[in-house]
Design a protein around this nucleic acid. Structure first.
Length: 580
RNA sequence: GCGCCGGUAGUGUAGCGGUUAUCACUGAGCGUUGCCAACGCUUAAACUCGGGUUCGAAUCCCGACCGGCGCACCA
């Protein structure tokens, strides 16, 4: 029997949500096209994300190139760390991590090149751990797609493996945009690329995928969040480190999780809440959603705490769809080092602090004539001394191995008390990172329902996609009860009205009304508007609710506002019009 | 990347050396139809690709590609 994945994928293919890319030429693993309905659905998911993170949280969206230059990915660690040195057994074809095989023989195998590792393996006569066969040459498999920028392949470019780096690279500009205040955040929704060795599981692992990421820069000394109180009573399914060793999920208020230090701090707790609200709003079933904490050894060494939102899928089990991490100052430090630019924020103190400062001032009037060309470097050495080192009558320093004596008079010592108004700090980064494709698939799966149609002996199934109206690609269908001129006319007028109001509406007059309802159920159209003979008498139509199949009768004059409120403002169906 | 299994209209399938390639649903057109996949007529639409064996291949063999599962890898 077909499992739910197959049913959902079959529907998605047939009705224009998801198609295997390049099917005309046989297809290519790891790439999917979003068809007309899929693209719209995905766009709506992204727009809900925007509503939450950009509009409500104020983390403006930016758009950086999908191709990055080498420096960026050297800094991020992707050039060095996003590849693995592999070696394959010539006999059984098993692939192994070369650096793992030699870790007992050499000290730092992860810093060695492929050629060096090949040599170590052959010199130490290392064999295949599985079958004892001979191991082949070590090669680097980097998950980044590589390309060259400009003619002559002089400059290396990479397709970005995540969108995050765009926000880090633009940090100085963003800081100015936000007028030098922490916290601030920037987001990006866009494509990322990973040359997966063997992509599987449909849309779950893609070579080209869409990420929605926020990088929120905060003061490392203050990881509270002003909005925490509003969300602290939300109950989530927690799967903390402790829960995982125990093997059970625990329901808990976010407040309690922070109080008990299960979550590292308020700010992360707040991001978990946003993530929960987003996922539920797009149509993920709350009971099939949990937050799993990374185990210590699973977490990047620099990360302070990391949580994944996982969605339960019938075929794939718990699938990671969001990662929420406190990345500390790792990324900014890395880019500061690589770019040789300070990436800090000046944070003023509440009140100026008095700081005693001692300054060594070499007297260049004396040093210059005496030491000539060396004078500048000698002065630098003198300035680096500690106050207690210049207490004697003469000061002895060493420059290029040569001992030099300088009398006290050539160096002045000033000590002053200064007022300091603030300091430069490297912000910490909180990063919620969303896999939009996985979320879109999950919500198809979670909204897919088959119902036995209870109508007189008909045991035909009703397939219905219970997408939230806000996420549904087609928002309303307009259907003349019968395909007759006098009913078609008003229907066409309604369609025009809806479209003018920005509602994506579909018109259908083929076949019976029931058939058309079903067609729309299957693609999740939340409301169907039917023009019948009463319409000709009193200018009213019926709206039929996808989930309950109930109808209300409303006036044509405010049909667009009515549908708009139902789809966008969460107006309840019962309030939309007179019961039929 | 390896191993096992599979690939036939839009979808699901039958056929397993010689068929006009089966059936159902779907789609389109006409008629009919006063609210949940009704009906009648008409019609469209497929053997993944390449090579081989054979008088003849959707069917057997080899390879590629794609998909599923397991291993490995991986956010």
């Amino acid at each position: 029997m077909a499992d739910k994945y197959e049913k959902v994928i079959e529907l998605a293919k047939r009705r224009g949500f998801l198609w295997n890319s390049f099917e005309l030429y046989g297809g290519t693993a790891g790439f999917y096209d979003y068809g007309p309905l899929g693209a719209m659905l995905k766009r709506r998911v992204e727009n809900i994300w925007r509503d939450i993170f950009v509009i409500n949280e104020g983390y403006y969206e930016i758009e950086a190139p999908t191709i990055g230059i080498e420096d960026v990915f050297i800094a991020s660690g992707h050039v060095g760390g996003f590849s693995d040195p592999l070696t394959e057994c010539q006999k059984c074809n098993e692939a192994f991590r070369a650096d793992h095989l030699v870790q007992d023989i050499v000290n730092n195998p992860d810093t060695m090149s492929a050629d060096q590792l090949t040599e170590v393996i052959s010199r130490n006569n290392i064999k295949c751990p599985e079958c004892g066969g001979r191991l082949g040459n070590v090669y680097e498999f980097n998950l980044m797609f590589k390309t060259s920028i400009g003619p002559g392949s002089k400059r290396t470019g990479y397709l970005r493996p995540e969108t995050a780096q765009g926000m880090f690279v633009d940090f100085p500009r963003l800081l100015k945009f936000y007028r030098d205040h922490l916290p601030f955040g920037a987001t990006q929704i866009g494509k990322a690329y990973r040359n997966e060795i063997s992509p599987r599981q449909g849309v779950i692992r893609l070579r080209e995928f869409t990420q929605a990421e926020a990088e929120i820069f905060i003061d490392p000394r203050d990881k509270t969040h002003p909005g925490f109180r509003e969300i602290c009573d939300i109950v989530l399914n927690f799967y903390s480190r402790e829960d995982q060793t125990r093997g059970s999920i625990q329901k808990m208020k976010i407040k309690d999780a922070v109080d008990k230090s299960i979550i590292a701090h308020e700010f992360l707790g707040y991001c978990l809440a946003l993530t929960y609200q987003f996922l539920v709003r797009v149509g993920i079933a709350p009971e099939k959603l949990r937050f799993r904490q990374h185990m210590k050894d699973e977490m990047a060494h620099y990360a302070a705490d990391c949580w994944d939102a996982e969605i339960l899928s019938e075929r794939f089990g718990w699938v990671e769809v969001v990662g929420i991490a406190d990345r500390t100052d790792y990324d900014l430090k890395a880019h500061a080092k690589q770019s040789k630019t300070e990436l800090t924020v000046y944070v003023p103190y509440d009140a100026p602090r008095k700081v005693e400062r001692s300054v060594i001032k070499p007297n260049m009037g004396i040093l210059g004539p005496r030491f000539k060309g060396k004078a500048g470097r000698i002065a630098d050495v003198l300035r680096s001394l500690k106050p207690e080192e210049i207490l004697g009558d003469t000061i002895e320093i060493t420059l290029d191995g040569e001992k030099i004596e300088i009398e006290k008079g050539a160096v002045a010592f000033e000590s002053s008390v200064e007022e300091v108004h603030g300091e430069n700090i490297i912000p910490h980064v909180i990063e919620p990172s969303f896999g939009i494709d996985r979320i879109t698939y999950s919500l198809l799966e979670h909204s897919y329902f088959e119902e036995e149609a209870a109508e007189e002996g008909e045991d035909r199934m009703r397939i219905v996609l219970r997408l939230p109206p806000e996420a549904a690609p087609v928002q309303a269908a307009v259907l003349p009860l019968l395909a007759r001129e006098e009913l078609i006319k008003p229907a066409e007028e309604i369609i025009r009205k809806l479209r003018k109001a920005g509602i994506l509406a579909a018109y259908d007059d083929s076949g019976t009304i029931g058939r058309r309802y079903r067609r729309n159920d299957e693609i999740g159209t939340p409301y169907s508007i039917t023009v019948d003979y009463q319409t000709l008498e009193d200018s009213t139509v019926t709206i039929r609710d996808r989930d309950s199949m109930k109808q209300v009768r409303v006036s044509i004059s405010d049909i667009a506002d009515n549908i708009h409120d139902l789809v966008c403002s969460g107006k309840s169906f019962e309030d939309a019009g007179r019961k039929v």
